[in-house]
């Protein structure tokens, strides 16, 4: 008896962390090993990307530390391998593992920035569309429909290609990353806008919004303070899956040679560079960045699928 009362007393002021750990989401997380593995892999990758200069065994962009004598060494476990370079070296003697860590960093930066841009654009337009309604709503949704009928990778490629020819060559390398983020971001806003518009239509007529309107709150403040927090749930799920798509899009564009410049290679650029050496048998230069890309995308997809199911009460 005394035990249970003390438990109740302890549980009464439940901390946020405590209630999260007791909740269904955490429970389903601990019950699926694949999802936990994905999460651990992602956390490790994120940390490695953030602390790349400290984690990477070599600095692939420090010319002083690169020795051409080390060029094109196979992975360490092969006969000619060098234990200093676990995954081998590329044609210029750069450590493949280090370039992958730095490449993942660029891929993640571009991917996350593009998703953030999509969210701002999509959620903003969705809120306005749903709240204002009328012709503006019809117009925004028409544009969304039209865009949806084109594959997003094609839209990103077209925007990127057009932007590239507009910008002078000398300025390319500096703003290539921003152009890329813009192109991928614009190609992905529709899903957010549609979802948020739907939820906004529902929230708009609820009493708390009417009450806010009655006390004289402006529409911007109502949308920001009251509607936005209530429509962000699904956005989180879309964003997870979208991150995987954005990373693949970035890698594809970089592979096609219209993405990030070779001076700051992403995973896609590394695969492109390595592809030239495939025929001479130096497979590790292109395959390892490829494996890293697939694992990254697969982990995000698995986590996203799980999140969608876990947050959706209908599926329980």
């Amino acid at each position: 008896m005394s035990v249970s009362t003390s438990e109740q007393a302890g549980a009464a002021p439940k901390s946020r962390l405590r209630s999260f750990l007791d909740g269904d989401v955490w429970y389903s997380f601990t019950r699926s090993p694949v999802v936990m593995l994905s999460a651990i892999f992602l956390i490790v990758t994120f940390l490695a990307a953030v602390f790349a200069p400290y984690v990477a065994p070599h600095d692939p962009f420090d010319l002083a530390s690169i020795d051409l004598m080390d060029a094109s060494l196979p992975p360490a476990w092969e006969a000619d391998g060098d234990p200093r370079f676990l995954l081998g070296t590329d044609d210029q003697g750069r450590d493949v593992l280090s370039t992958i860590i730095f490449g993942a960093r660029i891929s993640l930066i571009v991917g996350i920035a593009a998703v953030a841009f999509s969210i701002v654009l999509g959620v903003g337009l969705g809120l306005i569309s749903g709240y204002v309604g009328g012709r503006l709503d019809a117009f925004i949704m028409r544009v969304a429909d039209v865009q949806l009928s084109f594959p997003s990778i094609l839209i990103a490629l077209l925007i990127d290609g057009v932007a590239r020819s507009v910008i002078s060559r000398s300025a390319h390398d500096e703003i290539a990353l921003y152009v890329l983020v813009f192109a991928i971001g614009v190609s992905g806003w529709v899903q957010y806008a549609r979802t948020v518009r739907g939820s906004t239509l529902v929230e708009r007529d609820k009493e708390y919004v009417q009450a806010a309107r009655v006390i004289g709150m402006g529409p911007t403040l109502i949308l920001w303070r009251h509607v936005l927090p209530n429509v962000m749930g699904p956005v989180l799920v879309i964003a997870t899956i979208h991150l995987a798509v954005a990373i693949i899009t970035e890698a594809t564009l970089s592979f096609l040679g219209v993405g990030v410049p070779p001076t700051t290679p992403s995973l896609g650029t590394l695969i492109r560079i390595g592809n030239d050496y495939l025929f001479s048998g130096e497979w590790w230069i292109t395959i390892f960045p490829g494996v890293a890309l697939v694992l990254l995308v697969l982990a995000i997809n698995l986590l996203g699928d799980w999140l969608r199911d876990a947050l959706n009460p209908k599926l329980r």
């Binding site: 995987a244 693949i248 890698a251 594809t252 592979f255 096609l256 695969i271 592809n275 495939l278 025929f279 048998g281 497979w283 292109t286 395959i287 490829g290 890309l293 697939v294 995308v297 697969l298 997809n301």
Partner: peptide, 22 residues
């Protein structure tokens, strides 16, 4: 099919080239 969705098109091509071409 899950792997197929996570594999970018260009990587599939590169893998095919590596195995059947090289």
């Amino acid at each position: 099919s899950l792997i197929g969705v996570s594999l970018p098109t260009f990587l599939i091509g590169i893998l095919l080239i590596l195995f059947f071409g090289v």
